[in-house]
Nucleic acid binder design. Structure first.
Length: 479
RNA sequence: CGGGGUGUGGCUCAGGUGGUAGAGCGCUUGGUUCGGGACCAAGAGGUCGCAAGUUCAAGUCUUGUCACUCCGACCA
Protein backbone atom coordinates (compact mmCIF):
# COMPACT_ATOMS: atom_id res chain seq x y z
CA UNK A 1 0.00 0.00 0.00
CA UNK A 2 2.67 2.48 1.02
CA UNK A 3 4.59 1.79 -2.14
CA UNK A 4 1.49 2.42 -4.18
CA UNK A 5 0.46 5.45 -2.21
CA UNK A 6 3.46 7.35 -3.44
CA UNK A 7 2.17 7.27 -6.96
CA UNK A 8 -1.43 7.88 -6.16
CA UNK A 9 -2.75 11.30 -7.01
CA UNK A 10 -3.97 12.83 -3.82
CA UNK A 11 -5.45 16.09 -2.73
CA UNK A 12 -4.42 18.30 0.16
CA UNK A 13 -6.19 17.20 3.37
CA UNK A 14 -9.18 19.43 3.99
CA UNK A 15 -8.34 20.42 7.54
CA UNK A 16 -4.68 21.01 6.79
CA UNK A 17 -5.13 23.72 4.17
CA UNK A 18 -8.73 24.44 3.24
CA UNK A 19 -7.90 26.82 0.40
CA UNK A 20 -5.57 24.37 -1.31
CA UNK A 21 -7.98 21.50 -0.72
CA UNK A 22 -10.66 23.57 -2.45
CA UNK A 23 -8.48 24.27 -5.49
CA UNK A 24 -7.37 20.63 -5.64
CA UNK A 25 -10.99 19.56 -5.86
CA UNK A 26 -11.88 22.06 -8.56
CA UNK A 27 -9.06 20.77 -10.72
CA UNK A 28 -8.97 17.13 -9.59
CA UNK A 29 -12.69 16.53 -10.08
CA UNK A 30 -12.30 18.17 -13.48
CA UNK A 31 -14.85 20.87 -12.76
CA UNK A 32 -12.80 23.64 -14.30
CA UNK A 33 -9.46 24.74 -15.67
CA UNK A 34 -7.77 28.07 -15.35
CA UNK A 35 -7.89 30.11 -18.52
CA UNK A 36 -5.36 32.43 -20.07
CA UNK A 37 -7.25 35.40 -18.65
CA UNK A 38 -6.69 35.82 -14.94
CA UNK A 39 -9.86 35.31 -12.96
CA UNK A 40 -11.71 33.52 -15.72
CA UNK A 41 -12.25 29.78 -15.67
CA UNK A 42 -13.04 27.17 -18.24
CA UNK A 43 -15.99 25.06 -17.18
CA UNK A 44 -15.07 21.51 -18.14
CA UNK A 45 -17.72 18.96 -19.09
CA UNK A 46 -18.21 17.66 -15.56
CA UNK A 47 -18.35 21.14 -14.03
CA UNK A 48 -20.66 22.34 -16.75
CA UNK A 49 -22.92 19.31 -16.27
CA UNK A 50 -23.36 20.31 -12.62
CA UNK A 51 -24.12 23.89 -13.62
CA UNK A 52 -26.57 22.63 -16.22
CA UNK A 53 -28.43 20.62 -13.58
CA UNK A 54 -28.47 23.63 -11.26
CA UNK A 55 -29.95 25.76 -14.03
CA UNK A 56 -32.58 23.10 -14.76
CA UNK A 57 -33.60 22.92 -11.11
CA UNK A 58 -33.85 26.68 -10.75
CA UNK A 59 -35.42 27.32 -14.11
CA UNK A 60 -38.20 24.86 -13.37
CA UNK A 61 -38.94 26.76 -10.15
CA UNK A 62 -38.95 30.09 -12.00
CA UNK A 63 -41.37 28.79 -14.60
CA UNK A 64 -43.59 27.38 -11.86
CA UNK A 65 -43.80 30.87 -10.35
CA UNK A 66 -44.77 32.46 -13.65
CA UNK A 67 -41.49 33.83 -14.97
CA UNK A 68 -40.34 34.11 -18.58
CA UNK A 69 -36.80 33.95 -19.88
CA UNK A 70 -35.31 36.70 -22.03
CA UNK A 71 -31.85 37.74 -23.19
CA UNK A 72 -30.49 41.24 -22.80
CA UNK A 73 -27.40 42.55 -24.61
CA UNK A 74 -23.89 42.10 -23.26
CA UNK A 75 -23.12 45.83 -23.45
CA UNK A 76 -24.45 48.85 -21.65
CA UNK A 77 -23.83 52.41 -22.93
CA UNK A 78 -22.08 54.49 -20.31
CA UNK A 79 -24.85 57.08 -20.24
CA UNK A 80 -27.46 54.43 -19.53
CA UNK A 81 -25.45 52.96 -16.67
CA UNK A 82 -25.20 56.40 -15.08
CA UNK A 83 -28.90 57.04 -14.81
CA UNK A 84 -29.23 55.62 -11.31
CA UNK A 85 -26.65 57.25 -9.03
CA UNK A 86 -26.25 54.66 -6.25
CA UNK A 87 -26.13 51.88 -8.78
CA UNK A 88 -23.22 53.34 -10.80
CA UNK A 89 -21.27 54.24 -7.70
CA UNK A 90 -21.56 50.69 -6.46
CA UNK A 91 -20.37 49.08 -9.64
CA UNK A 92 -17.99 51.63 -11.18
CA UNK A 93 -14.77 50.24 -9.66
CA UNK A 94 -15.26 46.80 -11.14
CA UNK A 95 -16.67 47.50 -14.56
CA UNK A 96 -14.88 46.41 -17.76
CA UNK A 97 -15.12 48.88 -20.65
CA UNK A 98 -15.18 48.45 -24.39
CA UNK A 99 -13.61 51.51 -25.99
CA UNK A 100 -12.92 50.48 -29.56
CA UNK A 101 -14.70 48.80 -32.44
CA UNK A 102 -11.85 47.42 -34.46
CA UNK A 103 -9.35 50.31 -34.54
CA UNK A 104 -12.00 53.01 -34.31
CA UNK A 105 -12.63 54.60 -30.91
CA UNK A 106 -16.31 54.49 -29.94
CA UNK A 107 -18.13 57.78 -29.49
CA UNK A 108 -19.53 56.41 -26.24
CA UNK A 109 -17.77 53.66 -24.38
CA UNK A 110 -19.70 50.49 -23.57
CA UNK A 111 -19.69 48.72 -20.25
CA UNK A 112 -19.64 44.95 -20.20
CA UNK A 113 -22.66 44.21 -18.02
CA UNK A 114 -21.80 43.60 -14.35
CA UNK A 115 -25.56 43.07 -13.84
CA UNK A 116 -28.45 44.10 -16.02
CA UNK A 117 -30.80 46.27 -14.00
CA UNK A 118 -30.46 49.26 -16.30
CA UNK A 119 -30.97 47.19 -19.44
CA UNK A 120 -34.21 45.79 -18.09
CA UNK A 121 -35.29 49.22 -16.93
CA UNK A 122 -34.66 50.77 -20.30
CA UNK A 123 -36.70 48.02 -21.92
CA UNK A 124 -39.49 48.16 -19.35
CA UNK A 125 -39.86 51.88 -19.94
CA UNK A 126 -40.57 51.05 -23.55
CA UNK A 127 -43.02 48.16 -23.12
CA UNK A 128 -44.98 49.11 -19.99
CA UNK A 129 -47.87 51.50 -20.46
CA UNK A 130 -50.90 50.16 -18.70
CA UNK A 131 -51.68 48.35 -15.45
CA UNK A 132 -52.65 45.53 -17.80
CA UNK A 133 -48.95 45.18 -18.73
CA UNK A 134 -48.07 44.32 -15.13
CA UNK A 135 -46.49 42.45 -13.61
CA UNK A 136 -43.54 41.74 -15.89
CA UNK A 137 -41.77 38.66 -14.59
CA UNK A 138 -38.54 38.25 -16.55
CA UNK A 139 -35.40 36.27 -15.96
CA UNK A 140 -32.24 35.73 -17.93
CA UNK A 141 -29.44 33.14 -17.90
CA UNK A 142 -26.23 34.90 -18.86
CA UNK A 143 -22.71 35.61 -17.76
CA UNK A 144 -21.64 38.93 -16.30
CA UNK A 145 -18.27 40.57 -15.76
CA UNK A 146 -16.90 42.20 -12.64
CA UNK A 147 -13.23 43.08 -12.71
CA UNK A 148 -12.24 41.58 -9.38
CA UNK A 149 -8.74 41.89 -7.99
CA UNK A 150 -8.66 38.69 -5.98
CA UNK A 151 -10.13 35.72 -7.75
CA UNK A 152 -10.87 32.09 -6.93
CA UNK A 153 -12.53 29.40 -9.04
CA UNK A 154 -16.34 29.65 -8.76
CA UNK A 155 -16.25 31.80 -5.62
CA UNK A 156 -15.02 34.99 -7.21
CA UNK A 157 -14.30 35.03 -10.91
CA UNK A 158 -14.21 38.01 -13.23
CA UNK A 159 -16.75 36.46 -15.50
CA UNK A 160 -19.39 34.32 -13.85
CA UNK A 161 -22.55 32.55 -14.88
CA UNK A 162 -25.85 33.27 -13.24
CA UNK A 163 -29.48 34.01 -13.60
CA UNK A 164 -30.86 37.43 -12.91
CA UNK A 165 -34.57 37.87 -12.41
CA UNK A 166 -36.01 41.33 -13.01
CA UNK A 167 -39.62 42.08 -12.33
CA UNK A 168 -41.87 45.12 -12.47
CA UNK A 169 -45.05 45.45 -10.42
CA UNK A 170 -47.90 47.88 -9.99
CA UNK A 171 -47.52 48.27 -6.25
CA UNK A 172 -44.96 48.14 -3.54
CA UNK A 173 -46.85 45.27 -1.90
CA UNK A 174 -46.68 43.16 -5.05
CA UNK A 175 -42.96 43.82 -5.48
CA UNK A 176 -42.11 43.06 -1.86
CA UNK A 177 -44.14 39.88 -2.09
CA UNK A 178 -42.18 38.87 -5.18
CA UNK A 179 -38.88 39.66 -3.45
CA UNK A 180 -39.75 37.35 -0.59
CA UNK A 181 -41.25 34.68 -2.82
CA UNK A 182 -38.01 34.35 -4.76
CA UNK A 183 -36.00 34.32 -1.56
CA UNK A 184 -38.10 31.34 -0.49
CA UNK A 185 -37.55 29.70 -3.87
CA UNK A 186 -33.81 30.02 -3.31
CA UNK A 187 -33.99 28.56 0.15
CA UNK A 188 -36.06 25.63 -1.04
CA UNK A 189 -33.71 25.09 -3.99
CA UNK A 190 -30.64 25.07 -1.77
CA UNK A 191 -32.17 22.59 0.64
CA UNK A 192 -33.85 20.22 -1.77
CA UNK A 193 -31.49 20.34 -4.74
CA UNK A 194 -28.10 21.11 -3.21
CA UNK A 195 -28.71 19.74 0.30
CA UNK A 196 -27.40 23.01 1.70
CA UNK A 197 -29.24 24.68 4.59
CA UNK A 198 -29.25 28.48 4.55
CA UNK A 199 -29.96 31.38 6.83
CA UNK A 200 -32.45 33.72 5.30
CA UNK A 201 -32.88 37.37 6.05
CA UNK A 202 -32.46 41.06 5.36
CA UNK A 203 -29.07 42.64 4.65
CA UNK A 204 -27.94 45.65 6.64
CA UNK A 205 -27.82 49.04 4.94
CA UNK A 206 -24.07 48.81 4.30
CA UNK A 207 -24.29 45.32 2.80
CA UNK A 208 -27.23 45.87 0.51
CA UNK A 209 -27.20 46.00 -3.28
CA UNK A 210 -26.29 49.30 -4.93
CA UNK A 211 -29.59 50.94 -5.82
CA UNK A 212 -31.87 48.67 -3.79
CA UNK A 213 -34.27 49.68 -1.06
CA UNK A 214 -33.93 46.32 0.63
CA UNK A 215 -31.71 43.32 -0.04
CA UNK A 216 -32.59 39.85 1.23
CA UNK A 217 -30.06 37.06 1.22
CA UNK A 218 -29.60 33.36 1.75
CA UNK A 219 -26.33 32.66 3.53
CA UNK A 220 -24.70 29.26 3.83
CA UNK A 221 -21.97 28.13 6.19
CA UNK A 222 -18.97 26.43 4.64
CA UNK A 223 -16.98 23.63 6.28
CA UNK A 224 -14.40 26.14 7.54
CA UNK A 225 -17.11 28.19 9.24
CA UNK A 226 -17.05 31.03 6.76
CA UNK A 227 -20.18 32.42 5.14
CA UNK A 228 -21.08 32.22 1.48
CA UNK A 229 -23.68 34.64 0.18
CA UNK A 230 -25.56 32.06 -1.83
CA UNK A 231 -28.28 34.16 -3.40
CA UNK A 232 -29.83 37.60 -3.10
CA UNK A 233 -33.26 39.04 -3.73
CA UNK A 234 -33.69 42.79 -3.91
CA UNK A 235 -36.67 45.05 -3.52
CA UNK A 236 -35.68 47.98 -5.73
CA UNK A 237 -38.56 50.27 -4.87
CA UNK A 238 -39.39 52.88 -7.52
CA UNK A 239 -35.93 54.47 -7.66
CA UNK A 240 -35.01 52.84 -10.94
CA UNK A 241 -38.50 53.50 -12.28
CA UNK A 242 -38.04 57.22 -11.61
CA UNK A 243 -34.54 57.28 -13.13
CA UNK A 244 -35.74 55.45 -16.23
CA UNK A 245 -39.27 56.79 -16.31
CA UNK A 246 -41.08 53.48 -16.12
CA UNK A 247 -44.67 54.58 -15.70
CA UNK A 248 -48.01 52.96 -16.28
CA UNK A 249 -51.54 54.24 -16.39
CA UNK A 250 -53.49 52.75 -13.50
CA UNK A 251 -57.18 51.78 -13.41
CA UNK A 252 -58.04 55.27 -12.14
CA UNK A 253 -56.29 56.85 -15.16
CA UNK A 254 -53.41 58.10 -13.00
CA UNK A 255 -49.77 57.75 -14.08
CA UNK A 256 -47.78 55.71 -11.56
CA UNK A 257 -44.22 54.41 -11.28
CA UNK A 258 -43.67 50.67 -11.17
CA UNK A 259 -42.03 48.91 -8.22
CA UNK A 260 -39.25 46.52 -9.13
CA UNK A 261 -37.31 43.55 -7.89
CA UNK A 262 -34.20 41.70 -8.96
CA UNK A 263 -32.71 38.43 -7.73
CA UNK A 264 -29.84 36.18 -8.62
CA UNK A 265 -27.98 32.95 -7.97
CA UNK A 266 -24.63 32.35 -9.63
CA UNK A 267 -22.09 29.67 -10.44
CA UNK A 268 -20.70 30.48 -7.02
CA UNK A 269 -23.25 27.93 -5.79
CA UNK A 270 -20.87 25.27 -7.15
CA UNK A 271 -18.23 26.59 -4.76
CA UNK A 272 -20.79 26.17 -2.00
CA UNK A 273 -21.43 22.57 -3.00
CA UNK A 274 -17.72 21.84 -2.79
CA UNK A 275 -17.15 23.60 0.53
CA UNK A 276 -20.24 22.27 2.31
CA UNK A 277 -20.17 18.63 1.29
CA UNK A 278 -16.63 17.80 0.07
CA UNK A 279 -14.21 15.66 2.06
CA UNK A 280 -10.63 14.36 1.85
CA UNK A 281 -11.56 11.98 -0.94
CA UNK A 282 -12.99 14.75 -3.07
CA UNK A 283 -16.34 16.13 -4.03
CA UNK A 284 -19.60 14.80 -2.58
CA UNK A 285 -22.61 15.63 -4.72
CA UNK A 286 -26.28 15.56 -3.78
CA UNK A 287 -28.18 13.34 -6.25
CA UNK A 288 -30.24 16.16 -7.75
CA UNK A 289 -27.23 17.87 -9.29
CA UNK A 290 -24.91 14.87 -9.72
CA UNK A 291 -24.14 14.41 -13.44
CA UNK A 292 -23.61 10.75 -12.62
CA UNK A 293 -25.91 9.52 -9.86
CA UNK A 294 -24.84 5.89 -10.02
CA UNK A 295 -21.55 4.55 -11.34
CA UNK A 296 -21.31 0.87 -12.10
CA UNK A 297 -17.88 -0.68 -11.76
CA UNK A 298 -17.50 -4.20 -13.11
CA UNK A 299 -14.86 -6.34 -11.41
CA UNK A 300 -12.70 -8.70 -13.47
CA UNK A 301 -14.09 -7.61 -16.83
CA UNK A 302 -12.21 -10.36 -18.65
CA UNK A 303 -14.20 -13.03 -16.82
CA UNK A 304 -17.15 -14.61 -18.55
CA UNK A 305 -20.45 -12.75 -18.15
CA UNK A 306 -19.28 -9.83 -16.00
CA UNK A 307 -19.59 -7.12 -18.60
CA UNK A 308 -22.91 -8.56 -19.77
CA UNK A 309 -24.38 -8.44 -16.26
CA UNK A 310 -22.98 -4.95 -15.69
CA UNK A 311 -24.55 -3.73 -18.92
CA UNK A 312 -27.87 -5.27 -17.95
CA UNK A 313 -27.65 -3.54 -14.61
CA UNK A 314 -27.01 -0.22 -16.30
CA UNK A 315 -29.96 -0.62 -18.65
CA UNK A 316 -32.31 -1.52 -15.82
CA UNK A 317 -31.27 1.60 -13.90
CA UNK A 318 -31.48 3.80 -16.97
CA UNK A 319 -35.12 2.81 -17.33
CA UNK A 320 -35.83 4.32 -13.92
CA UNK A 321 -34.62 7.67 -15.28
CA UNK A 322 -31.43 7.80 -13.23
CA UNK A 323 -28.18 9.16 -14.61
CA UNK A 324 -26.06 6.01 -14.73
CA UNK A 325 -22.56 5.43 -16.00
CA UNK A 326 -20.95 2.04 -16.61
CA UNK A 327 -17.19 2.41 -16.32
CA UNK A 328 -15.97 -0.37 -18.58
CA UNK A 329 -12.59 1.23 -19.23
CA UNK A 330 -9.52 -0.94 -18.74
CA UNK A 331 -8.36 0.80 -15.56
CA UNK A 332 -8.01 -1.11 -12.30
CA UNK A 333 -11.15 -1.23 -10.14
CA UNK A 334 -9.36 0.63 -7.35
CA UNK A 335 -8.50 3.41 -9.73
CA UNK A 336 -12.13 3.74 -10.75
CA UNK A 337 -13.27 3.81 -7.13
CA UNK A 338 -10.97 6.74 -6.38
CA UNK A 339 -11.82 8.55 -9.57
CA UNK A 340 -15.54 8.51 -8.93
CA UNK A 341 -15.09 9.38 -5.29
CA UNK A 342 -13.12 12.43 -6.39
CA UNK A 343 -16.02 13.34 -8.64
CA UNK A 344 -18.54 12.92 -5.85
CA UNK A 345 -20.74 10.28 -7.48
CA UNK A 346 -23.41 9.49 -4.84
CA UNK A 347 -23.68 5.72 -5.31
CA UNK A 348 -21.21 3.19 -6.64
CA UNK A 349 -22.39 -0.25 -7.65
CA UNK A 350 -19.78 -3.00 -7.88
CA UNK A 351 -20.55 -6.18 -9.73
CA UNK A 352 -18.10 -9.06 -10.06
CA UNK A 353 -18.06 -12.85 -10.48
CA UNK A 354 -18.78 -13.45 -6.78
CA UNK A 355 -21.83 -11.15 -6.91
CA UNK A 356 -23.16 -12.62 -10.08
CA UNK A 357 -23.01 -16.07 -8.51
CA UNK A 358 -25.23 -14.72 -5.71
CA UNK A 359 -27.47 -12.60 -7.95
CA UNK A 360 -26.51 -9.38 -6.20
CA UNK A 361 -24.37 -6.30 -6.47
CA UNK A 362 -22.59 -4.13 -3.92
CA UNK A 363 -23.70 -0.55 -3.31
CA UNK A 364 -21.36 1.93 -1.64
CA UNK A 365 -22.51 5.39 -0.58
CA UNK A 366 -20.26 8.35 -1.17
CA UNK A 367 -21.38 10.32 1.87
CA UNK A 368 -20.83 7.76 4.64
CA UNK A 369 -18.97 5.01 2.75
CA UNK A 370 -21.40 2.40 3.96
CA UNK A 371 -21.76 -0.74 1.92
CA UNK A 372 -24.90 -2.78 1.29
CA UNK A 373 -25.75 -5.73 -0.92
CA UNK A 374 -28.68 -5.42 -3.29
CA UNK A 375 -30.39 -8.31 -5.06
CA UNK A 376 -30.16 -7.74 -8.80
CA UNK A 377 -33.93 -7.96 -9.27
CA UNK A 378 -34.46 -5.31 -6.56
CA UNK A 379 -32.06 -2.68 -7.90
CA UNK A 380 -34.62 -0.62 -9.80
CA UNK A 381 -36.79 -0.20 -6.69
CA UNK A 382 -34.06 0.23 -4.13
CA UNK A 383 -31.52 2.56 -5.72
CA UNK A 384 -33.85 5.59 -6.12
CA UNK A 385 -34.86 5.27 -2.47
CA UNK A 386 -31.24 4.96 -1.43
CA UNK A 387 -30.45 8.17 -3.31
CA UNK A 388 -33.27 9.98 -1.53
CA UNK A 389 -31.96 8.78 1.80
CA UNK A 390 -28.48 9.92 0.86
CA UNK A 391 -29.77 13.41 0.09
CA UNK A 392 -31.51 13.56 3.45
CA UNK A 393 -28.36 12.48 5.27
CA UNK A 394 -26.31 15.13 3.49
CA UNK A 395 -28.78 17.87 4.33
CA UNK A 396 -29.08 16.73 7.90
CA UNK A 397 -25.33 16.63 8.40
CA UNK A 398 -24.88 20.08 6.86
CA UNK A 399 -27.72 21.43 8.98
CA UNK A 400 -26.24 20.05 12.17
CA UNK A 401 -22.82 21.39 11.24
CA UNK A 402 -24.28 24.88 10.78
CA UNK A 403 -26.51 24.91 13.85
CA UNK A 404 -23.68 23.68 16.07
CA UNK A 405 -21.49 26.55 15.01
CA UNK A 406 -23.79 29.50 15.56
CA UNK A 407 -22.76 31.11 18.84
CA UNK A 408 -24.94 33.46 20.86
CA UNK A 409 -22.96 36.36 22.24
CA UNK A 410 -23.99 39.38 24.28
CA UNK A 411 -20.81 41.35 24.89
CA UNK A 412 -18.17 42.73 22.55
CA UNK A 413 -15.18 41.06 24.23
CA UNK A 414 -16.91 37.70 23.98
CA UNK A 415 -17.73 38.47 20.36
CA UNK A 416 -14.09 39.13 19.48
CA UNK A 417 -12.85 36.10 21.40
CA UNK A 418 -15.43 33.76 19.89
CA UNK A 419 -14.72 35.01 16.38
CA UNK A 420 -11.02 34.39 16.91
CA UNK A 421 -11.32 30.98 18.50
CA UNK A 422 -14.32 29.33 16.91
CA UNK A 423 -15.03 29.09 13.20
CA UNK A 424 -18.68 29.80 12.53
CA UNK A 425 -21.32 32.48 12.87
CA UNK A 426 -22.21 34.65 15.80
CA UNK A 427 -25.74 35.68 16.65
CA UNK A 428 -25.81 38.99 18.46
CA UNK A 429 -28.15 41.92 18.93
CA UNK A 430 -27.47 45.16 17.13
CA UNK A 431 -28.66 48.74 17.47
CA UNK A 432 -28.69 49.26 13.70
CA UNK A 433 -25.94 51.87 13.48
CA UNK A 434 -23.31 51.67 10.78
CA UNK A 435 -20.67 52.68 13.34
CA UNK A 436 -21.21 49.59 15.47
CA UNK A 437 -21.22 47.40 12.39
CA UNK A 438 -17.96 48.97 11.21
CA UNK A 439 -16.43 48.46 14.62
CA UNK A 440 -17.09 44.75 14.49
CA UNK A 441 -15.55 44.55 11.05
CA UNK A 442 -12.55 46.50 12.26
CA UNK A 443 -12.03 44.24 15.27
CA UNK A 444 -12.77 40.85 13.74
CA UNK A 445 -13.03 41.19 9.91
CA UNK A 446 -16.48 39.64 10.31
CA UNK A 447 -19.45 41.33 8.67
CA UNK A 448 -23.15 41.23 9.24
CA UNK A 449 -24.50 38.43 7.10
CA UNK A 450 -28.20 38.97 7.65
CA UNK A 451 -30.82 40.06 10.11
CA UNK A 452 -32.61 37.20 11.81
CA UNK A 453 -36.29 37.06 10.97
CA UNK A 454 -39.15 37.14 13.42
CA UNK A 455 -37.15 37.82 16.56
CA UNK A 456 -38.31 39.99 19.42
CA UNK A 457 -35.35 41.92 20.81
CA UNK A 458 -37.35 43.70 23.49
CA UNK A 459 -35.07 44.33 26.45
CA UNK A 460 -31.89 43.43 24.60
CA UNK A 461 -28.98 45.74 23.88
CA UNK A 462 -26.49 46.21 21.05
CA UNK A 463 -23.44 43.97 21.39
CA UNK A 464 -21.15 46.91 20.59
CA UNK A 465 -22.55 50.12 22.11
CA UNK A 466 -25.00 48.78 24.68
CA UNK A 467 -27.86 50.92 23.40
CA UNK A 468 -31.30 49.51 22.75
CA UNK A 469 -31.19 46.71 20.17
CA UNK A 470 -33.14 46.95 16.93
CA UNK A 471 -32.62 43.41 15.73
CA UNK A 472 -30.75 40.13 16.01
CA UNK A 473 -28.00 39.66 13.45
CA UNK A 474 -25.93 36.74 12.16
CA UNK A 475 -22.29 37.74 11.79
CA UNK A 476 -19.47 35.89 10.10
CA UNK A 477 -16.37 36.03 7.99
CA UNK A 478 -17.39 35.83 4.39
CA UNK A 479 -16.10 34.59 1.08
C1' C B 1 -1.92 48.52 -5.14
C1' G B 2 2.31 46.61 -1.50
C1' G B 3 5.45 42.30 -0.04
C1' G B 4 7.15 37.07 -0.89
C1' G B 5 7.54 32.80 -4.23
C1' U B 6 7.62 30.20 -8.93
C1' G B 7 8.24 29.74 -14.45
C1' U B 8 12.48 23.27 -17.71
C1' G B 9 8.06 17.20 -21.95
C1' G B 10 0.78 16.88 -20.51
C1' C B 11 1.76 16.92 -14.67
C1' U B 12 5.36 17.10 -10.33
C1' C B 13 10.15 18.31 -10.27
C1' A B 14 16.03 17.45 -10.84
C1' G B 15 19.79 19.91 -13.43
C1' G B 16 27.17 22.61 -7.32
C1' U B 17 31.20 26.76 -9.58
C1' G B 18 28.43 28.14 -17.84
C1' G B 19 29.96 23.12 -22.21
C1' U B 20 24.26 22.14 -25.92
C1' A B 21 18.68 18.61 -21.23
C1' G B 22 16.99 14.21 -17.31
C1' A B 23 13.67 11.30 -13.70
C1' G B 24 8.92 9.79 -11.89
C1' C B 25 3.91 10.03 -13.12
C1' G B 26 0.83 10.47 -17.39
C1' C B 27 0.34 9.25 -22.79
C1' U B 28 0.73 5.42 -27.26
C1' U B 29 1.18 0.07 -28.84
C1' G B 30 1.30 -5.22 -27.54
C1' G B 31 0.74 -8.86 -23.73
C1' U B 32 -0.41 -10.57 -18.79
C1' U B 33 -3.88 -8.61 -15.02
C1' C B 34 -8.70 -6.97 -12.36
C1' G B 35 -13.10 -7.08 -4.96
C1' G B 36 -9.21 0.00 -3.10
C1' G B 37 -5.10 3.83 -7.79
C1' A B 38 -1.32 -3.47 -11.39
C1' C B 39 3.03 -5.53 -14.07
C1' C B 40 6.38 -6.51 -18.31
C1' A B 41 8.19 -4.86 -23.00
C1' A B 42 8.66 -1.35 -26.84
C1' G B 43 7.69 3.87 -28.15
C1' A B 44 6.26 9.20 -28.74
C1' G B 45 7.01 13.80 -26.51
C1' G B 46 11.05 19.81 -24.58
C1' U B 47 13.10 26.56 -29.59
C1' C B 48 14.22 25.41 -20.74
C1' G B 49 7.99 31.95 -19.95
C1' C B 50 9.63 36.06 -23.36
C1' A B 51 13.39 39.83 -24.90
C1' A B 52 17.97 41.95 -24.78
C1' G B 53 23.06 41.59 -22.80
C1' U B 54 27.95 39.18 -21.09
C1' U B 55 30.65 34.86 -23.32
C1' C B 56 34.07 30.84 -28.02
C1' A B 57 29.68 28.73 -25.46
C1' A B 58 23.65 30.45 -21.38
C1' G B 59 18.47 26.05 -18.58
C1' U B 60 22.64 28.01 -15.61
C1' C B 61 25.31 34.78 -15.12
C1' U B 62 23.13 40.26 -15.78
C1' U B 63 19.08 43.50 -16.94
C1' G B 64 14.26 44.13 -18.44
C1' U B 65 9.50 42.15 -19.24
C1' C B 66 5.24 38.90 -18.92
C1' A B 67 2.45 35.21 -16.52
C1' C B 68 0.96 32.40 -12.46
C1' U B 69 0.70 31.87 -7.17
C1' C B 70 0.68 32.99 -1.77
C1' C B 71 0.09 36.89 2.10
C1' G B 72 -1.88 41.76 2.95
C1' A B 73 -5.00 46.03 1.32
C1' C B 74 -9.49 46.63 -1.53
C1' C B 75 -14.14 44.36 -2.94
C1' A B 76 -21.82 43.12 -3.10
Amino acid sequence: MSKIEKFVESITPRDEDFARWYTDICLGAELCSYSSVRGCIILRPYGYAIWELITLELDRRFKDTGHQNVMMPLFIPESMLQKEKDHVEGFAPEVAWVTHGGETPLTERLCVRPTSEVLFCDHYAEIIQSWRDLPKLYNQWVSVVRWEKTTRPFLRTREFFWQEGHTAHATKEDAVEETLRMLDVYEEFYRNALAIPVLKGLKSESEKFAGAVETYTVEAMMHDGKALQAGTSHYLGDGFAKAFNIQYTDKDNQLRYVHQTSWGVSSRSIGGLIMVHGDDEGLVLPPAVAPIQVVIIPIATHKEGVLEEATKLRDVLKCTGLRVFLDDSDRMPGWKFSEHEMKGVPIRLEIGPRDIAKNQCVAVFRDNREKVFIALDRVAEEVPALLDALHDRMLERAERSMRERIYDVERLDAFVRTMEEKPGFIRASWCGSAECEAEIKELTTATSRCIEEGVDVEGRVCVVCGKKAQCSVFWGKAY
